[in-house]
Amino acid sequence: MRRTLRKWSPFIAAAAVFALAPALSAQLTQYDLEPRSGMESHIGNITGHAKDAKADYRRFCVGCHGELGDGNGENFPWLDPKPRDFQLGIFKCRSTPTGTLPTDEDLSNTLARGLDRSNMPQWSNLTKQQRADLVAWVKHFSPRWVSEKPGTPIQIPAEPEVTPERIKAGRDVFAKVQCWKCHGVEGKADGPSAATLTDDQGRPILAFNFTEGARPKCGSTDQDLYKIFMTGLDGTPMPSFADNIKPDEAWDLVFYLKALEPQKSKEKAIAKQLGLKPVDPNAPPPSGQ
């Protein structure tokens, strides 16, 4: 018996730590959440009702995100990246500026798309109504949706035609705002700061590697890429570049990023034809900035 105990003691200790973890980090209780259970979401012409999502949440979400939405579900210890703490109301994938709440549609899109390279699957099998209800339920966990409105979505100008000039200009933007500090000069996520990145909870986090064919967590359309660096991914080291990249330059950067990806694309073909070299981190910063 004693030997068994000794053998299992590290696990018992670990289990104790995990059992305590939710108690330590949950900031809100059932009593705080209850008054907000009338929360709604509005996506297109669909109205979601938090209360209607209770059963779906218990069935599909609670294992990771937890009863109180604090991300401390049963599976928490085994997940990396960790499930989102909905109580904080901080979301990576938004169409809205950094520091603001996402729109209901942003949340619904995340549900449908899933988060690549995480345990969050695609919930595209749920109906739009189910997703809208779940979005309302997700919102009811955070007091922010009572005191704040979602941010105003950023304006994305119509996508211009890809040209060699634009791809070259995109490379200059990549050099100027120093994307390579984390993402590396070739987009391999091996920049000088990549190894020390942590999320807002202090957990290690990886920069996106453009060269391995993975889908970015917040979507892989050209518009998604545009949004990612112009809004930033809140809760992560990825900042917003809205103040430092002009809308037209932003499209140039999107084209250059696509040229770094291994997928066949017009951008990649043009970059190859140009013989475009990776940016030089030791080059002096462009003058007149």
């Binding site: 901080i90 950094t98 809140d234 900042p239 103040d243």
Partner: peptide, 8 residues
């Protein structure tokens, strides 16, 4: 509310 902005 936390925010995160680049300053190149």
């Amino acid at each position: 509310i936390p925010w995160n902005q680049s300053q190149p």
